[in-house]
Design a binder for these strands. Structure first.
Lengths: 151, 151
DNA sequence: GCTTACTCTATTAAATCGATAGGGTAATAA
DNA sequence: TTATTACCCTATCGATTTAATAGAGTAAGC
């Protein structure tokens, strides 16, 4: 039996999902739950999801620029979904918010980079393992759309 | 079709696998490939895997403290595997080196923490999604032992 | 007893994250 | 037209973590 004593100092310091992604997902889910395409104010989303309004602004802006959301200014304005929730795969959302899905650059589909310390990917044990992780994670994201996240 | 233009500034900044884990995995694989239980010097591992020797020292120390490695001092000393590679599951290695496997604390088996912004996990869309990711990742790590990583 | 190689502590620079502040601009209603 | 509302953008901040380095200490073996 193996002890984890040496790692008792891991009180979840290294969180792999950024707050940006987390808040973005929550906001998208909230919008999806509204069903209609009528704009929802930032302040309403922020309040309902316990998110810093200013921080949320920047996140929604990103989502709008990448074509996931539309916005309307002025009185009665806000953000709204452009597509149907069922047509928004999680792969898209995650890549927009979080960036690479892979745990190491050398197994990333959209953000590939060679490891500078690794002479040969084919014989790299880390590469081999992380390739499997990427594939399984990718499958989860491919099998889920925004519609699946709405309670 | 969705553009990733807004994220062109993602040159893999947020690497999810730390160098510590990466180097640790490489070192373990190297030791496993040596087959025999004879000690291997830190300097030899560091040179072969292109790792900073001092950094590697601290990593191997962690692995020894958690019972994965043994060490021998003095001339002819070094590090060696205590168990057979096939008896070392990746779940163990990853938890020792990287810590939590889950992407958010609220779905972690060994490092659970409640989200302070989330009133109800059962209805949280992020929770629901990340639970699936954790399970699929965990399955990969459970299906791989150190022996599977050796080329 | 001397060499070798592991062990430990402390420190460093760089980078990132999350958050905040404050001002600017555009669209809408009255 | 004017006031209001709400989106849009830039800059900055401290806290934290990572990766790496330096240097001194200690134990085992020849």
């Amino acid at each position: 039996m193996l002890s984890l004593i040496a790692n008792v100092n891991f009180p979840y310091l290294r969180c792999m999902l950024s707050k940006k992604t987390k808040y973005g997902l929550k906001a998208l889910t909230f919008l999806a739950a509204q069903k209609g395409r009528s704009p929802v104010q930032i302040s309403e989303i922020a309040k309902h999801e316990n998110i810093s309004q200013k921080f949320l602004e920047s996140i929604l802006l990103t989502l709008r620029k990448t074509g996931l959301l539309g916005s309307k200014k002025g009185k009665g304005g806000g953000y709204y979904l452009i597509k149907e929730p069922k047509d928004i795969p999680m792969t898209t959302v995650m890549r927009v918010l979080e960036g690479p899905i892979a745990m190491v650059p050398c197994v990333s589909l959209n953000f590939y980079e060679k490891c500078d310390d690794c002479p040969d990917e084919a014989s790299c044990s880390v590469h081999k393992l992380m390739l499997q992780v990427r594939d399984s994670t990718l499958e989860v994201f491919r099998n889920n759309t925004l519609a699946d996240l709405v309670p």
